[in-house]
Design a protein around this nucleic acid. Structure first.
Lengths: 182, 182
DNA sequence: AATTTATGTCAGTCATGTTGACATATCTTG
DNA sequence: CAAGATATGTCAACATGACTGACATAAATT
């Protein structure tokens, strides 16, 4: 067994040798910063593992997820949500179309648009991955009372940038530009 | 302005056409799943933006962060925490050493070990990035009472895998196998 | 002395992001 | 209607940060 070079209390002391010109000691939320790192790592890890079996990566998951959740999403909307370039999106989207996880329909009003929909095959994949993540979330919320759960939702919402919200965010909050009213 | 193809209520209805043989409709935590996605995206986005100025990426940030926070971390520990290969770590670590953000010291007991420490330059970088993230967290927690904040911590902790915890996780929780004591 | 461990490094590959340029179909506007 | 703007797709080149596999060195352990 390797020796333990830092024990329970060995994290870097916050107030250092702050002698003289330093720009004032800040109170950092190291706890939340690190918890978010580990929590998110394990949260997406659930899906990552399963995706390997399909020969897909995280990028495919994100596309499938939002297409399933917001049927009729346009390519442009997806680009806003994922914040990647159309070339990046194009690659994974093409695979998902070719392999029958997503279908495109031409827009009714605007025939240039390609509206995206999950096929049953795609829905099954999203459901499987969301099931794993839901299991983890349900487990994590098990011993937390309704007020606590509400606080968690409020916190996560407040962590999100509200300037220039994309269509999905507008759906999650209640149609942009208004101030968040919790 | 492009037309809105899904409005506030247009998210995929959970109970589909569940006629017959489907494997039972699950209650999915779409809310938390999506909030985690957006919250984490914007949370790391703060640092990403700043890192560009240094010519560094997220990988550098993660290394710097944990080296600063847990001084004397061994290379092997870092590999456990980040869950990447030593080849991947080697690349970014080499840059951080070459550019004077991190220094190595030979282990006292075991002279094969390279114990890692942040230099003042490294500490400044970590502090800058943690400051941005702390700002966001503080803002998000502003209107949440102490019980709510406790619930958020409990939730994030419970989201993390506790089997095979690395040394940093042992420090965050209270040395493996025991239950977390808030 | 032999083996294991901790670390470093070379070489090649893959996934996913980026820019820039350009093509096509379709809608909008003067 | 002709001209321009918009939505999408695609080609090519490149960067980052993962990966595997192989191998080298120094130091500890057996």
């Amino acid at each position: 067994m390797t020796d333990i070079n830092f024990s329970r209390g060995a994290a870097h002391p916050d107030s250092h040798g702050n002698a003289g010109t330093s720009p004032a000691p800040r109170e950092m939320r190291w706890d939340i910063i690190e918890l978010l790192f580990f929590a998110y790592r394990d949260f997406v890890g659930d899906a990552d593992h399963e995706l390997e079996a399909f020969g897909f990566g995280r990028a495919h998951h994100r596309v499938m997820h939002f297409v399933y959740r917001y049927p009729g999403l346009k390519v442009a909307d997806l680009l806003d949500v994922l914040r990647i370039t159309k070339q990046s999106l194009g690659r994974v989207l093409k695979q998902l179309l070719d392999e029958g996880y997503i279908i495109q329909k031409t827009g009714n009003n605007d025939r240039r648009q390609r509206l995206l929909y999950a096929t049953p095959k795609g829905e099954a994949l999203v459901a499987k991955l969301a099931g794993l993540q839901t299991d983890r979330i349900t487990r994590a919320l098990r011993d937390i009372n309704p007020d606590g759960v509400a606080a968690i939702g409020q916190f996560l919402r407040a962590m999100i940038d509200r300037d220039d919200p994309d269509k999905v965010l507008e759906a999650i909050f209640g149609t942009g530009s208004k101030k968040p009213r919790e």
